[in-house]
Every structure is written in C-alpha cells, then in structure tokens.
Amino acid sequence: MTPLIRVSFVEPRSLYWPGELLACRYQIDSVDRNELQAVEASVMWQTEGKGEEDMAVHAFQRRVPADTPDGDLGRSSQIETVLPNSPLSYSGVILKIRWRVRIRVFYSKGRELLADLPFQLGDVPDPPAPESSAVSA
C-alpha cells in the first residue's frame, strides 16, 4: 500500500518573511505503521532554470521508529523554523529560487515517497520580460 502524506502549514498562508516562524504539520496515512522506516522533514530552497540545480536545506528533521514512544511514525508531527534572511524566492528569467517544505517517507523494501509544500519567502516581483542573453563557454 502506498502511504498518503498530509502536509500543511499551521498558519494557512503561503507568503512568509525572513525572520518569521514557519511551522508545518505532517502526517502519514494509509500505511501499516510497521512499514515506515524513517520520515524526513526539510525546509529548503532549490534553484530551477537554465543552470544546474542547486539546493540547500535550512532546517532538517529525521525521525525513525525509535524516536517515538510507540514507534508510530505516521502520527501527526511538526517541523518549525525561523526563516533566514536569504535567499528570497525569485522567479527570474533564467534562474528561479523556490522554497518548499519537503516530507520524505522511507517505507518497506527501500521505497521512498515525497511530498512538497511550496511557499514564498519575501515578495521579490518577477523581472521584466527577456531582452538579451549571452552565452559563453
């Protein structure tokens, strides 16, 4: 059976500011609790666009059955962190920076499942439409 990941912000909004506390709740359903091996929660950013993808994790939490009193990783849990000053979310022409909360579930036979909950850090508007690009080797 494939697990179902429920993930949501404690405060239901998607725009956050540097220095704010981001709290996110997550829960794993539809799976036998014995099948869950580990659950990881990350608050991270990733680049998208023309360049190779870069990413960095701002806050990270990994739980294994031994970390919970009853060994049930499916129960509702929470990750919270104070957001950094930079980098802010950005939708540029050849570079985009996306912030997200990522829940990654490791379950039976080495299988993994992940769910992303995007949010925006800061409110940098999109730059104007493309004019020119230069490529060099």
Partner: peptide, 8 residues
C-alpha cells in the same frame, strides 16, 4: 533573523 540551522 536566523542563519541556516539544518539541525539533524
């Protein structure tokens, strides 16, 4: 404001 913590 915070620096990246990445608490493992």
């Amino acid at each position: 404001v915070a620096r990246p913590r990445a608490v493992v």
